[in-house]
Nucleic acid binder design. Structure first.
Lengths: 156, 156
DNA sequence: ATAATCGCAGATCAAAATGGTCTGTGATTA
DNA sequence: TAATCACAGACCATTTTGATCTGCGATTAT
């Protein structure tokens, strides 16, 4: 299904939490897990990956914890998904060249779907953590402001 | 992960196959399963759901099978996903009101992500089966023609 | 009318992905 | 040097998904 994993949810929640602290504030796992009722062990793994990918800075000591390494507007949802789940792939066969797929040659669905995937990635890249801090006006973004040529409903 | 299920893949392949036949042509499961190496039993289920949702017409008899019920340009990817997997939900908690989610009140990620979900649904609704038949020009759609305000790469 | 050919339906099993737990290690600082 | 924190990897549980099995029901050609 077209669904985010819980780990990504946890990551986003944690990052949202951090981006609402005073900048540079160091927060430990327990505080975050407490705030959102997330099991500490799994949150630990999630935050580790985020720090490996340069999104968080870890402070490995008593009174330590994690802090944001970048400005919240420089971290996109796509960055987070990439850090936690790896690259987005709508199709299971879209990673380079999947040997198991017999019908690459006569597969008509691949390239249209890759087009959609590209657009989804772009959407995810457009939105930054900043949007999670309450007071941000509205999303902006091309799609939002553009004219709906389709005659179809827009869902937002 | 943000991935389509195999069943949806199968459905799209089958529909792509059907939309490339002469209109109204009746094709049975075996032919499709043969063309793409899909297990017949599971393909059967997939096609059944598509016919329940009014995308396919079933012909329940010898020399029977399935045919497209609508024009391929009137069936969107979203229609197919809805028929096979049920409604798209990026977040596990976004179906009406999930009791298990303790922090609905202080959840900052929900509404921004629902916004993204809406846009994804719109993308999926914009693309029809017609795009799978080779000779179609290019996608059209608002996103494609719009100006990229972001300064970021576009992925397509 | 009846047998062959097709789809319909539900139960059930297998595999994979994900979520979660457990145990122990290593860095830093009070 | 002991307390507090992150780090790391193995491991198990759960859920989702994919696939299979069995039997039934509709339609048509003979």
């Amino acid at each position: 299904m077209l669904k985010l994993t819980k780990k990504v949810d946890y990551a986003l929640l944690a990052l949202s939490f951090l981006s609402q602290q005073e900048t540079g504030k160091v927060v430990n796992i327990w505080e975050i897990s407490e705030a959102y009722q997330i099991p500490t062990e799994i949150l630990a793994k999630v935050l580790q990956r985020l720090s490996k990918k340069g999104i968080l800075q870890s402070h490995h000591a008593p009174k330590g914890g994690y802090s944001l390494k970048k400005s919240s507007k420089d971290v996109s949802i796509l960055d987070v998904i990439n850090a936690i789940d790896g690259p987005v792939a709508i199709l299971s066969c879209s990673d380079s060249h999947d040997k198991t797929c017999q019908q690459i040659d006569n597969c008509d669905i691949r390239s249209p779907l890759e087009k959609i995937q590209g657009k989804i990635m772009w959407l995810l890249e457009e939105m930054s953590l900043e949007e999670f801090t309450h007071s941000v006006p509205t999303t902006g973004g091309v799609l939002h402001g553009s004219i709906n040529l389709s005659g179809q409903p827009r869902y937002h």
